[in-house]
């Protein structure tokens, strides 16, 4: 009797495994992993005027001869053409500078929220998350009205007498930075907040008791202990911004050429699917390093969980 019960329990567990692991695995394998294989495949093809607009990689010739054509031209173009190299460099630059800006603004905010009275904390945190629930596109759009030459910011500055002629901010890198920081700030604040609230205030009291002044205690105790939060927040900003499309497209100018926008243009305007695929592969290659870093961090944090 007990034998069959054990078998029953074991098959229950096997079924649970199959469903819990199997279904998401199959879904992600089919709709997330397989597509990358196809992207890689097409990045090695040539663009043609056909439907679909790329050449096949292999042809069956007579007598069982398989002819494979691999075209590395797309990749060569990406690395050799100044336009693409610039876009690549500029994407990384924008992502990096924006990450730093988000950190500079986000850290004090997260710290202020984490150390505020508990009845305020939830409200302040809600206010950080709230914009995230409203349309991203519309929030970026809001800046067009503010930053354009005859926009609200210029009106304000002229009225205050701070400037004589309107500044042109829209369609410049500055506008892109503003847009990125604005859109991604919550992604920086949330992990930082989560980290800082876990920090035991007794540590700071102990530091003070040992004669450490508050500012010094902040840099010697709080900052080192919040490093995981800083890294997590930075990755959550850096990685998606490298491939950002909407912000450079709406707020940036011709010189704010970023990989995401370039890929979009190659695909939609030039219908060059192989080149767009090659760009995607390059973008993916760049992001693997920070992504794996983030993953490692995540795992380490989980192992340290009590």
């Amino acid at each position: 009797m007990s034998r069959s019960m054990q078998d029953q329990a074991r098959s229950d567990r096997r079924l649970s495994r199959l469903i819990n692991i199997g279904l998401p695995y199959v879904w992600l394998g089919l709709f997330f992993l397989l597509p990358f294989v196809i992207v890689l495949h097409i990045s090695l093809a040539e663009s043609t005027l056909a439907q679909p607009p790329y050449t096949a990689l292999w042809h069956w010739l007579d007598r069982g001869l398989l002819q494979i054509e691999i075209n590395l031209g797309n990749f060569l173009l990406v690395f050799e053409d100044d336009l693409y190299a610039w876009a690549l460099w500029h994407s990384l630059q924008v992502a990096f500078v924006s990450t730093v800006l988000c950190l500079l603004l986000g850290y004090p905010m997260a710290y202020a929220i984490a150390t505020s009275a508990s009845r305020w904390r939830l409200i302040l945190l809600m206010l950080i998350i709230l914009p995230f629930w409203t349309s991203f596109l519309i929030r970026v759009y809001a800046w067009i009205g503010i930053l354009q030459t005859n926009g609200l910011l210029n009106d304000l500055l002229l009225w205050l007498g701070l400037i004589e002629t309107p500044l042109s901010i829209l369609h410049t890198p500055t506008a892109v930075y503003i847009g990125v920081v604005y859109s991604y700030l919550p992604f920086m604040i949330l992990p930082l907040y989560a980290n800082l609230t876990r920090l035991d205030p007794i540590l700071l009291e102990a530091a003070a008791d040992l004669g450490c002044r508050p500012l010094r205690a902040f840099f010697r105790i709080t900052v080192p202990l919040s490093l995981p939060g800083i890294l997590a927040g930075s990755m959550l900003v850096f990685i998606p911004v490298v491939g950002e499309f909407v912000i450079p497209d709406l707020l940036g100018g011709p010189e704010s050429l970023m990989l995401g926008k370039l890929l979009w243009t190659e695909f939609f305007s030039n219908t060059d699917w192989p080149l767009a695929s090659a760009l995607a592969i390059v973008l993916l290659g760049i992001l693997v390093v920070p992504f794996v870093m983030m993953q490692r961090l995540q795992q380490r944090l989980e192992e340290n969980r009590p």
Binding site: V39, I239, L263, W264, F267, M294
Partner: peptide, 10 residues
């Protein structure tokens, strides 16, 4: 964290 353009294209 995957950029939207990559998910969309792939």
């Amino acid at each position: 964290v995957m950029p939207d353009v990559i998910i969309g294209l792939s």
